[in-house]
Computed example of a mutant assay.
Amino acid sequence: MTAPNPAPATRSWYKRNEIAVTPWLFLAPAMLFFAFYVIWPIYQSIMISFYDWDGLGDATFIGMGNYVELMDDGAFEVSLWNNLKWLLFYLLAIPGGLFIALFLNQTVTGIRLYKSLFFFPFVISQVVVGLVFSWFYLPNEGLLNGVLGLVGLGPINVLGDPDLATYGIIAAGLWPQTAYCMILYLTGLNAVDPEQIEAGRLDNAKGWKMLWYIIIPQLKPATFIAFVVTIIGALRSFDLISIMTNGGPFGQTRVLSFYMFEKALSEYGFRMGYGAAIAVILFLIMLVFIAYFLWSMWREEKGR
């Protein structure tokens, strides 16, 4: 004969709240790691930005002094404008990835080979991408100037021209970023409802109408991820600049992440507080974009 269940009043607090508490126990390790490795460093960076500190000696509190200095810093202005250029042109990776994914989603002879070729830039290191494009842009031996010479155009030094260097690096970054967006959209296309496609065909929807009214609305989750990842990639563009120009020529290819590194770790004196102030500005810019997209997705889900 089994023993009767204990009365509710004698059960432990955990047993009474087991269903509500158990998910939080599973989430607790991830939340602790996130707090320790993300939230705490962000808080420290914000606090350091209010100090004049070389990273080793005593820190001197200067309040908003670093931020006031940023307002009159010409190099910071150049870096900020370059980040805006990266944001604008990097977004080309999203439609580029979509159209490549639409092509690779077809049944074509040799499609596996095409997929491998388009996927290849995603798996190679940014350092390798930077080196490949540095060779591609060489003034005399580079492939770009070799092609221009065939059509009678003179050689151009892309990475040596202050007006062209930033765009040359952005083009290098678009290569792997487009491949990443392509992968996201290929995954999204596998989840497209075939019944909606068939219904669209019955309503005589073809070409752009089919794409705009039926396919793209079903790719909104992939588009959201592509936007977030592309914006983050544009704002933290450091590797390619370090490899291809090291901020030159004449500092015209700096972005905020690279300028932060220069101020905090490269220059004589190691201005950690000033570098932290640049990092905080970069974080706020990134936060605005991500918060907007999260709010848009939440509003859309709530409206369903």
Rank of each mutant, 00 (worst) to 15 (best):
I46N: 02
I46S: 02
I48Q: 08
W53M: 14
D54Y: 13
L56M: 14
L56N: 13
L56F: 15
G57W: 06
A59M: 13
F61N: 02
I62H: 03
G63M: 05
M64A: 15
G65Q: 07
N66W: 12
Y67P: 00
L70G: 06
M71F: 08
D73H: 00
A75C: 04
F76S: 03
N83H: 03
L84A: 11
K85A: 13
K85V: 15
L88T: 14
F89R: 11
F89N: 10
Y90D: 11
L91F: 13
L91H: 06
A93T: 11
A93Y: 10
I94Q: 12
I94V: 15
G96H: 14
G97V: 07
F99H: 09
I100R: 08
I100S: 08
A101V: 13
A101Q: 07
L102W: 09
T107S: 11
I111F: 03
R112M: 10
R112E: 11
K115P: 07
F119W: 12
F120R: 04
F120P: 04
P121R: 01
F122E: 00
V127L: 14
V128I: 14
L131E: 12
L131S: 05
V132A: 11
V132Q: 06
V132G: 05
F133C: 06
Y137T: 13
Y137E: 11
L138H: 15
L138Q: 14
P139G: 01
P139A: 06
N140M: 07
L143R: 08
N145S: 15
V147M: 09
L148S: 07
G149R: 12
P155Y: 02
D161Y: 04
P162Q: 10
D163W: 01
L164F: 11
L164T: 06
A165C: 08
Y167N: 14
Y167Q: 00
G168C: 05
I170M: 05
I170D: 07
I170L: 06
A172Y: 06
A172W: 01
G173F: 03
T178H: 01
A179C: 10
C181A: 04
